[in-house]
Design a protein around this nucleic acid. Sequence first.
DNA 1: GTGGTCTAGACCACA
DNA 2: GTGGTCTAGACCACT
Lengths: 137, 137, 137, 137
Amino acid sequence: MSIVLDIDPAAAAPIWRQIEDGVRRLVASGSLPPGAAVPSVRELARSLRVNPATVSKAYQLLSDAGLLVVRRGEGTFVAELESGARDAERARLLAEGAARLVAVARSMGATKAETNRAVDAAWREFTEGGEGTKDAR
Amino acid sequence: MSIVLDIDPAAAAPIWRQIEDGVRRLVASGSLPPGAAVPSVRELARSLRVNPATVSKAYQLLSDAGLLVVRRGEGTFVAELESGARDAERARLLAEGAARLVAVARSMGATKAETNRAVDAAWREFTEGGEGTKDAR
Amino acid sequence: MSIVLDIDPAAAAPIWRQIEDGVRRLVASGSLPPGAAVPSVRELARSLRVNPATVSKAYQLLSDAGLLVVRRGEGTFVAELESGARDAERARLLAEGAARLVAVARSMGATKAETNRAVDAAWREFTEGGEGTKDAR
Amino acid sequence: MSIVLDIDPAAAAPIWRQIEDGVRRLVASGSLPPGAAVPSVRELARSLRVNPATVSKAYQLLSDAGLLVVRRGEGTFVAELESGARDAERARLLAEGAARLVAVARSMGATKAETNRAVDAAWREFTEGGEGTKDAR
DNA sequence: GTGGTCTAGACCACA
DNA sequence: GTGGTCTAGACCACT
């Protein structure tokens, strides 16, 4: 199974960041276990219909961050994170997202209850509608 | 009283959007009630240490969206929104933020419970670290 | 006075690293004081006869490292380092270089005295062959 | 006794060069005396967990440089260097390293005294801390 | 004017 | 085969 990332070339976020975030999540969720090979730069570029340099930039950032390791001439692999590091990454991503939401909520004077209701609603939306929220902006 | 916005010139988001969002939230939260005057472009530009053209762009977008109205020779004012419009805007912003969080959470295989815990934690973080609440609950 | 960097396109080190190191040293030596503007990407690219993307990469790395700050639409500037940070950077660069030399020396069984003699010789070489010492401090 | 080299596949320097330099230093330091047998390509490749072609490339360069000689059917051996050649090689490596350090030092306006202090410090570091500088950057 | 992103294509070094 | 570097040129957004 080749890895699945959906990239929206029209989105505000640069493509390299979409790839970066996608891989981060695949690693955090365990879909890409430590030691696994990620698709080669050229292969992923081809399958995403994107320039290799763009994929390369994302991989480079991920390897700077220690999530991937590049073995020259061989390919790119998921780093062997010490136990718990993956959970930490997961928690970090989640906390970051939650903080962003709360910041928005508080800045407009929403209550905690209102916020929770909004999250519940969004969750329902997702599980029912399957897929479809494409968030602009 | 001059309006309070914190602008980070080094942030990823463009400055005009930071201003736009800031004003949107001040309106949504009621800090800027309908009919209130907003600072002039050059005044706000000076206080934020930002290029006037940048403030102007934000105001322009807000007028186009109907949140502000320009009265020539007098200044710029918060539009008189029809009843409920403000709440609708609030709900929209909140729903948007919640959807973003849920998208992240699901993409990394987090459960609803985990997500809620993260939101709770972020909320606690904010109320402790930050200043008093206006309508906490 | 425009900044002076000598770039060797035939060197083993990639051009972006040569630029990065050059700027690092100009900052460490105080030739580029905090707040000063560095040449624009395009301008430096033109004067070095190099592709703008190459300069951009170097600047990007330096700004990730906190030595430069990019102000969108305005240009790139030397970061306002807290007092002592510049000296620390200087010391770091020097220590790094010294460590590399000592590593080589020890790995081939050279003594401390031999190493010191080699440094002395290199120093003499430099002061004679090149121009006079401009900075004795 | 098998020869000891530490290879870092993640380092900036290519693996073949790490091997080449390692052997050069073992010869310069006398650990590999003239006439001594070096491990076979495949044996070294196995012990370093490295591709045999990589070891082969290093050995090839070393033979071209006259440091190793291949005796067909027998193996690869350290060349019988004329007297003084080993010391010359040592001096050359040391001078090269010293020149690099001085270049860095002068480019950032460091004094000779500062440089010497840095070397002393690095030397102390090494003799105390044992081993440990892994120089990625 | 500024920097950032992306493409297409070339070339190189590594394993 | 792999990834890394560089170029030329286009387009975009910000100030």
